[in-house]
């Protein structure tokens, strides 16, 4: 499920200038496909401004999202990997960004479940941190998908 959703929604880059930019760039594929409206990106950034970097799920990996269903047209997820870490508030270094756009409260749960399988398994997590292409990423996800 997660693999399918990420197809064509991944980006691999050297570095970005700020955490705000990392969210903007990571969300671009969703915006281009009209899954989200421009405003959703602002909502995600505002969310971090307001509550800090709680979207950094585990060290190095962030999942920006916001409670703004009106700006989401379709449930989706996109992925950005940076070679050089960008600093989020509270001095949190992040290299991998998953943008979550959830239309309602249930459809995205399967995505979350797959993501959880990746993050909870140390072995998979290590491999995951080293993927270098979309193909590699999707192959890896396949191994954990339920």
């Amino acid at each position: 499920m997660l693999g399918q959703y990420l197809k064509g929604n991944t980006k691999f880059m050297g570095e970005v200038s700020s955490w705000e930019d990392s969210i903007k760039i990571a969300a671009e594929p969703l915006l281009a496909k009209n899954f989200i409206k421009e405003k959703y990106i602002k909502s995600m950034i505002d969310n971090v401004h307001e509550y800090g970097a709680y979207i950094v799920l585990v060290p190095g990996i962030a999942m920006p999202h916001a409670k703004d269903e009106e700006s989401v047209n379709k449930t989706g997820m996109s992925f950005l990997k940076l070679e050089k870490a960008v600093e989020y508030p509270e001095e949190k270094e992040v290299k991998i960004i998953f943008v979550l756009a959830a239309k309602d409260n249930s459809e995205h749960l399967e995505l979350i479940a797959d993501l959880s399988s990746i993050l909870a398994d140390e072995e998979v997590l290590t491999k995951f941190k080293n993927v270098e292409s979309e193909k590699e990423l999707i192959e890896l996800i396949k191994t954990v998908e339920e």
């Binding site: 709680y54 979207i55 799920l57 999942m63 999202h65 916001a66 409670k67 979550l100 959830a102 409260n105 995205h108 749960l109 979350i112 993501l115 959880s116 993050l119």
Partner: peptide
């Protein structure tokens, strides 16, 4: 939001 990080 009760949807993203908490769900994860």
């Amino acid at each position: 939001a009760g949807a993203g990080s908490s769900a994860l």
